[in-house]
Nucleic acid binder design. Structure first.
Length: 422
RNA sequence: GUGUCCAUAGUUCAGUUGGUUAGAACGCCAGGUUGUGGCCCUGGAGGUCGUGGGUUCAAGUCCCACUGGACACCCCA
């Protein structure tokens, strides 16, 4: 075996591809219900878009991007996330001029050069939504409700929604200072990893996986208790809106978002049926991003969710996926006349909307019937010189074994009769 | 980037303290007499034992490197 799919990427083969189609179909239907419309953007962008949007110092930008130069020496990057691209498109096409609130959703592949593990791939797929143009917390609640509604409609058993506010450029700097002062006092007891994070990313320490860290930071100040007046009111309004929408949630002051552009609302939906990477979806508000990308100040809120992780949970929870339907009819050929007939009939049937299949190996009838069975054909019929001479054939319903005669020259009609029965 | 474990037919696995032609199940193909699937029976095809080195009279089995995979850290969806 010479060529293989590259590390961290995988092929989605039948019957698994069926699960993807099914998942995407449900996602699309929920997006429509919430009045979000689809956006598709190129798989690559100028590298600078992500550097500016996500933040130069984030792990994603500093060490995980697939970056290359094209033949005219432009630095391009396979998109590691979607939000920067969506805002870029929003600004490029002045979507904000057409309506006050632009609501977009996407289903697309993303690329990050990380070490693969459970629920983490180098090419992975996300669905997500962005509501651009409004600062009301009611919109945050709408976005969060959309995310939870999608999981609810899949029948996911116990997703947990946790929300927080990470403040804004007014209150976050002061809080960070306060937090650093606290962390310095317990510095020596923290894990080496967390010690490093005091300068780099102090908020992260609060959701460390190290039990000892968590003990030491149990009494650390939380940003939700140090918000400015406006952020505090926004967070209160969010909780009220979620309650009105009857979306159950938990306030978790330790939730952080990894990307620089987040302000105020941050949320996560997790499942205990995932491995260590337990986030199904994450999102929040990013009021500063549009400006960062050269547009005029534009508040926005959104979320992104992993499709692989969704499917992992569904399979873990033994979700009842619809099966791939087999052909409606399999035409087995008894002889050369039968094969000639089948060659014409399968196309005629397909053109009249009936999925039809036949044998291509001139095999024994037994083998052809086996094939019909394997393919889960609804009906099988054997055609040969006799049938053609009599203008009659026998339709066999594979599941029950019952048979029924029909005229050969109205095969489609006879099949439709059988297929339309429950 | 770090760590732990793993790598044998299409798939899931077994291969005894290194010792002749590497096995099973499922799947696949063919047959079980005349034109009918599922169950059963019989037969068959299919493996450079991840790759490359090394130790040894002898390596699927021991050692090293590489590649790939799984899981965890990190990070995140």
């Amino acid at each position: 075996m010479k060529f293989k799919s590259i590390k961290g990427t995988r092929d989605i083969l039948p019957p698994e591809s069926r699960q993807w189609q099914y998942a995407e179909q449900i996602i699309r239907s929920r997006m429509a219900l919430f009045n979000y419309r689809e956006i598709r953007t190129p798989v690559f962008e100028e590298t600078a878009l992500f550097a500016r949007g996500i933040g130069e110092l984030t792990d994603i930008v500093s060490k995980e991007m697939y970056t290359f130069t094209d033949r005219s020496d432009t630095s391009l990057t396979l998109k590691p996330e979607m939000t920067a691209s969506v805002i870029r498109a929003y600004l490029q096409h002045n979507l904000g001029e057409q309506q006050p609130l632009t609501r977009l959703f996407y289903i697309a592949p993303m690329f990050r050069q990380e070490r693969p593990q459970a629920g983490r791939l180098r090419q992975f797929h996300q669905f997500g939504a962005e509501a651009i143009g409004g600062r009301s917390a009611a919109i945050d609640a709408d976005v969060i409700a959309l995310a939870t509604e999608i999981y609810r409609s899949f029948g996911i058993l116990n997703p947990a929604l946790r929300i927080n506010s990470v403040g804004c450029h007014l209150c976050r700097p002061a809080y960070k200072k306060l937090l650093r002062e606290f962390l310095e006092q317990v510095r020596d007891g923290l894990s080496p990893e967390s010690q490093r994070r005091i300068e780099l990313n102090p908020l992260r320490i609060l959701d460390s996986k190290d039990d000892n860290d968590n003990r030491l930071t149990a009494s650390a100040p939380l940003i939700k208790d140090h918000l400015c007046t406006e952020c505090r009111e926004h967070f209160a309004e969010l909780q009220e809106s979620l309650a009105l929408a009857q979306v159950p949630f938990l306030v978790d002051g330790r939730i952080v978002r990894g990307l620089d552009y987040y302000t105020r609302t941050a949320f996560e939906i997790t499942s205990s049926d995932l491995g260590s990477q337990d986030a199904l979806a994450g999102g929040g508000r990013y009021d500063l991003l549009a400006e960062e990308l050269g547009g005029k100040p534009t508040p926005a809120v959104g979320f992104a969710a992993g499709i692989e992780r969704l499917l992992m949970v569904l399979n873990q929870q033994k979700h009842d996926f619809p099966e791939e339907p087999g052909p409606s009819v399999f035409i087995a050929c008894a002889d050369a006349d039968g094969r000639r007939f089948a060659a014409r009939a399968v196309m005629e049937l397909r053109r009249s909307g009936i999925s039809a299949e036949t044998d291509y190996f001139s095999r024994s009838l037994k083998a052809q019937m086996r094939e019909a069975d394997r393919q889960q054909a609804v009906v099988a019929t054997v055609i040969g010189a006799t049938e053609i001479a009599d203008n009659r054939c026998t339709l066999k319903v594979m599941k029950t074994g019952e048979t029924r005669q029909t005229a050969l020259d109205s095969l489609a009609g006879g099949l439709k009769l059988i297929l339309s029965r429950p």
